[in-house]
């Protein structure tokens, strides 16, 4: 399998293209045009009030490893009182300002735009490919749409969640993204792997 990546520099993203047997792709991955991102961390003792304030502003936060959407935002729980929030079509500064206005004085908010590569992974063999490195049970009865997890895959720390029945969204630290994509490419190639959004690598 390793000869698959022989001509791809380990310091670059895997270039977009089709890997593995020709024909239809069992696994599809798309690097999403970087959305704005921020961490939302409740102040000490303020988790419950933060959840109430965000719900009133249209973003229903779950105090658990789950993802919720509302008010044009997507929030994944990463730890007690801690969320990674994504927003498309706005700047990082705008996202921070919006969150600060939703929960004045209740949370520490840090711009994380550009910190992560956001990768949407889907396809009928997506779960089979992910199972080669994800040590979280991905069976739909254990990890349903809306569930999130922060874990390591091939020694790389990731936060990922199941957006819907078909799509997993991964947030991978940008400087680790080449290593993660190499793992994903060799894991998914046997099913036919279509990668897009990474350009020429």
């Amino acid at each position: 399998m390793s000869d698959l990546l022989e001509h791809i520099a380990p310091t670059h993203l895997v270039p977009e293209g089709h890997y593995g047997p020709q024909g239809s792709a069992g696994v599809t991955a798309h690097a999403v045009e970087t959305p704005a991102a921020a961490t939302l961390v409740a102040r000490k003792g303020a988790t419950a009030r933060l959840i109430v304030a965000c719900a009133a502003a249209g973003l229903p936060l779950a105090d658990g490893p789950r993802v919720s959407a509302g008010a044009g935002l997507e929030a994944a729980g990463t730890a007690p009182g801690r969320w990674l929030v994504l927003a498309e079509g706005v700047s990082g500064a705008d996202l921070v300002a919006r969150l600060a206005a939703m929960a004045p004085g209740l949370a520490a908010i840090t711009d994380q735009s550009d910190a992560n590569l956001i990768l949407d992974i889907s396809g009928e063999k997506a779960r089979a490919a992910l199972a080669k490195g994800v040590t979280v049970d991905l069976d739909p009865t254990a990890f349903a749409a809306g569930d999130a997890a922060t874990t390591t895959v091939s020694h790389v720390g990731v936060t990922f969640w199941r957006r819907d029945a078909d799509t997993y969204r991964f947030a991978v630290g940008r400087s680790f993204a080449p290593a993660f994509l190499r793992w994903l490419t060799v894991s998914a190639a046997e099913y036919g792997f279509a990668l897009s959004g990474t350009g020429r690598g």
Binding site: P65, A79, P80, T135, V136, A149, T150, T151
Partner: peptide, 11 residues
Amino acid sequence: PYCGARSSHEF
């Protein structure tokens, strides 16, 4: 208690 069952390698 937050994340669920995980490999001891994460700890």
